[in-house]
């Protein structure tokens, strides 16, 4: 199932902020289903990589303590207009997603 992934860039002074929003439940594995009394299995994003023009600039590790539908931001310096930003993620069930944007 493809999940909605959005990448946005915005200028911050002489830096560019890359914001990523993923539509993801980020289930901790600690919650109990009220009807069945069974634990809801953990389901969360573990890795997120940020690339600018094909070069990796940052790699984030996410835990279960990241909120539902996570919004993650990093900043890069000297990103020229038209530079391609690519963000991809994988979760603990092997689901993957990616999105692109241009500065």
């Amino acid at each position: 199932m493809a999940r909605l992934t959005k990448v946005k860039t915005r200028p911050k002074g002489n830096e560019t902020e890359i914001l990523v929003l993923v539509n993801h439940p980020m289930e901790t594995g600690n919650r109990v289903d009220k009807k069945t009394k069974e634990k809801i299995p953990a389901h969360f994003i573990q890795k997120m990589t940020f690339k600018v023009n094909g070069k990796q600039v940052a790699e984030a590790d996410l835990g279960t303590a990241v909120s539902q539908n996570p919004l993650i931001g990093v900043r890069v310096k000297n990103a020229k207009k038209g530079a391609k930003v690519e963000v991809s993620w994988t979760d603990n069930k092997g689901e993957q997603g990616s999105a692109n944007a241009t500065v």
């Binding site: 990796q56 600039v57 940052a58 790699e59 996410l62 993650i72 990093v74």
Partner: peptide, 8 residues
Amino acid sequence: TAVSLSGA
């Protein structure tokens, strides 16, 4: 959460 930076 944590991030390792390589250019950002």
